[in-house]
Design a protein around this nucleic acid. Structure first.
Lengths: 128, 128
DNA sequence: CATGTTACTTACTAAAAGGTGCATACTTGT
DNA sequence: ACAAGTATGCACCTTTTAGTAAGTAACATG
């Protein structure tokens, strides 16, 4: 009766197990309104803070900084401060970050293929 | 200069485009504290409401119902009400739901492979 | 006739996430 | 002297999300 994850979730060690499944773990890293976008743009090329902000349209400074910090702590992005005036800071994906970006590939494609349906249902929800 | 998504994000039609990239779209569907877990268990086999609640340990009725409804609207899960007393309702993934579960596979594996690192950094964040 | 079973609902509350706007320090261009 | 650009910090507020606890319907059983 050891069916993958089900017995993990049913075990009494749930408080010790930090995550219930790999999905749960992964979503702690990419959870946050702008994180997928940040990953997306950094996966293409390293960017300075200001560049990134222009890419991720609509993000506030507060959120962008906060998410970048979290991604840095998670080992996903690398931050290089050139100690110049005016400030120049470069953000890029670490190898770990690239492995995450790879893993996100199929989900991303699924989203692209189905964005019409998803958008339609999103509207249905907001109407209700 | 049509580099994948970047020009979508930079375009002025951003209000018309519902999503910035496929990732964004996909995360609207699986975003929600318990949704990944629900997907996970339903991907294995159809379940009655009560069974599912026992699998997804810690979820409240309110949240479970709410998430199931949203997943149903999104076309990811199918709900069958047998109109019996006491009530019997079966939840299962639709073909669309299975396609989503497939797309989540690599992310899920990434999370499993790296859950130690992720857990460590999670602790670092909560300490700070 | 009370009790249990099952899938939900509702009202209220708490917590987390996100947004806004202002401030900083230093330099370059006007 | 002054505005503009640079990467951040901080205080405050709103919105979104989640949790809690109670209740409901309908019948079957003891």
């Amino acid at each position: 009766m050891h069916l993958l994850v089900s017995n993990m979730a049913n075990s009494k060690e749930i408080e010790i197990q930090p995550f219930i499944c790999g999905l749960d773990a992964a979503l702690r890293v990419i959870g946050g309104k702008w994180k997928p976008l940040i990953l997306f743009f950094l996966a293409k090329e390293p960017r300075r803070y200001g560049e990134l902000k222009r890419c991720v349209r609509g993000v506030s400074d507060k959120m962008l900084i906060q998410h970048l910090k979290e991604l840095e702590v998670d080992g996903v992005v690398l931050r290089t401060d050139y100690q110049e005036i005016p400030p120049r800071v470069l953000y890029e994906l670490s190898p770990f970050g690239f492995s995450l970006a790879d893993a996100l590939g199929s989900l991303c494609r699924w989203g692209e293929e189905n964005e019409d349906v998803i958008a339609k249902n999103l509207k249905a929800k907001s109407d209700a």
